[in-house]
Nucleic acid binder design. Structure first.
Lengths: 116, 116
DNA sequence: TTGGATATATCGTATTATGATGTATTACTT
DNA sequence: AAGTAATACATCATAATACGATATATCCAA
């Protein structure tokens, strides 16, 4: 099952940072597979999104990578920089706040249980 | 405080449907004020987003409106159609699922608490 | 030997909320 | 009385982002 794509906007970077942070070192394909598994196929990072995102984050100094040859193939193992750890925290906080706010507005969690 | 705009993508319609549904009948400005209050100013539906959204939803048959003259002003009171109620349910379910999935991936809520 | 999984990459496109801009009324403040 | 903020609606060009399409190449199993 796939979500309305729009809801996923703004989530790619947090997801990448969090999953990379959990696992230390990962290459793109591995990362996308892990996210797919963890979400029961609900979130499927596509090549067209993931690789450009990894490039951008590297350029922004929040990721670094190291090339490892596997036979004739070259894998790029990415990991967070110190700046990446900071960014992760910022984005996690933002996500937490966003979810809390959405729950308030959409699920009425602000309502006091009526006294009967 | 304002969220990263991208996180709010895909949330406008659910928010409008839910808040309208709660209050029965509302006009645009009223709706935007209510959302702002409920979220402590964190979500501020802008004119440039809200009015086009209301028009589109009306065109799509999930909202109807009724014009009410207040002095020389004309207010448009919107409410959900039957189709709008269905759409609200669909979008609420989707939002619930989305939040659950994000919590799983980003906040590791899938992890079993370690037995000590 | 052919197809599927692995692995990376690029680029045009669609979607969506926003910012800018505009019009007009009503209420408050000095 | 004048000025300004809030009320109330509207439109359109623009930016941001993930995706689809497309491409290349390796490895493995049927």
């Amino acid at each position: 099952m796939i979500y309305s794509k729009e809801l996923l906007k703004g989530t790619l970077e947090v997801i990448v940072l969090q999953v990379l942070s959990e696992n230390g070192k990962m290459y793109g394909y591995e990362l996308s597979q892990m996210v797919k598994e963890k979400t029961d196929g609900k979130i499927h990072l596509k090549d067209g999104s993931l690789y450009p995102a990894l490039h951008k984050m590297t350029k922004d100094g929040i990721l670094t990578f190291e090339e490892v040859s596997i036979g004739k193939r070259v894998r790029k193992y990415y990991k967070l920089t110190a700046k990446g750890e900071e960014q992760k925290q910022t984005l996690l906080d933002e996500m937490r706040d966003f979810i809390k706010t959405m729950e308030k507005v959409v699920f009425n969690e602000f309502k006091i249980a009526p006294v009967i």
